[in-house]
């Protein structure tokens, strides 16, 4: 790949908490407009990878580049500028309880101070409509919404500022299969709408098959396989076969038992 055009590039990323090594040597390249999905079991380092890219955690070593710009050790003001390119849907939606739905959606727009409150509200209502929620929802509190509706609001917030890169952290966790499919469809449509690069972490294989262009599997802090979604069933890796088929027997289970 040509390094100049990579949207996200991770090289030799290493992160430990005390003695516990969570990311050992993570390497990952994501092209502009690509939808990359990282799969892996609980505790494999998926969320830590995302948090390192966003600067919520600082890696012990390695490089993180966004549009070719090094993010490790970057000044706070420069990081803020780069973060303006991002939208993120959190696992539990992470909506702000103290604000009504529309202010949650418009939060990033208001933070960047590019729009008046009235304009931001209009955009928020439009984004809510885009994710299938009526304008009546705008004035409700997040606590009044169901889990599926909260995810939709989280998605509306993620796309509100038309970001260049969107992260999805376990987007279907805790949802019923039908709502999961609805959210997956919305993710695909919204990412296409805004022309964003998407990075998703999940262990839901139906999400992988719906959302991904390329898939990467993380195991014990290493990316053990990366390739197109269509090739995942013929990866030739026992680890991936076990994971995607959800088998109890296999190398992952055996190693957990040994641990």
């Amino acid at each position: 790949m040509n390094n100049q055009v990579l949207k996200i590039s991770l090289n030799g990323l290493h992160k430990r908490f005390g003695e516990k090594i969570v990311l050992d040597d993570v390497n990952l390249d994501v092209m502009p407009g690509e939808s990359m999905v990282i799969i892996g079991g609980s505790g494999s380092g998926k969320s830590v990878t995302l948090k390192c890219i966003l600067g919520l955690l600082t890696p012990n070593s390695g490089s993180i580049k966004i549009d070719g710009q090094e993010m490790v050790g970057i000044a706070a003001d420069d990081r803020k500028k780069v973060l303006n390119k991002f939208g993120m849907l959190f696992q539990g939606a992470a909506l702000f309880d103290s604000l009504p739905v529309w202010e949650n959606v418009a939060f990033g727009l208001l933070a960047q101070r590019l729009h008046s409150r009235d304009e931001a509200k209009e955009i928020a209502i439009e984004k809510l409509r885009r994710v299938g929620l009526s304008p009546d929802v705008a004035k409700l509190s997040p606590a009044e919404l169901s889990g599926g509706m909260q995810k939709r609001v989280g998605l509306a917030r993620a796309i509100a500022a038309n970001p260049e890169i969107i992260f999805f952290d376990e987007p279907t966790t805790g949802l019923d299969p039908i709502m999961s499919d609805v959210i997956n469809e919305l993710i695909v449509e919204c990412v296409k709408d805004v022309g964003a690069t998407a990075l998703t972490i999940t262990h839901d294989m139906s999400s992988v098959r719906k959302i991904a262009d390329n898939v990467s599997m993380i195991y014990h802090g290493n990316m053990i396989w990366t390739g197109p979604k269509d090739k995942i069933d013929q990866s030739g890796s026992e680890y991936i076969d076990q994971f995607i088929n959800g088998k109890a027997e296999g190398p992952i289970k055996m190693e957990i038992l040994k641990g």
Binding site: L56, M88, F107
Partner: peptide
């Protein structure tokens, strides 16, 4: 509930 992380990702 990751709301503080969400603030950071929203440039705040």
């Amino acid at each position: 509930t990751e709301q503080i992380d969400a603030l950071t990702t929203l440039s705040t």
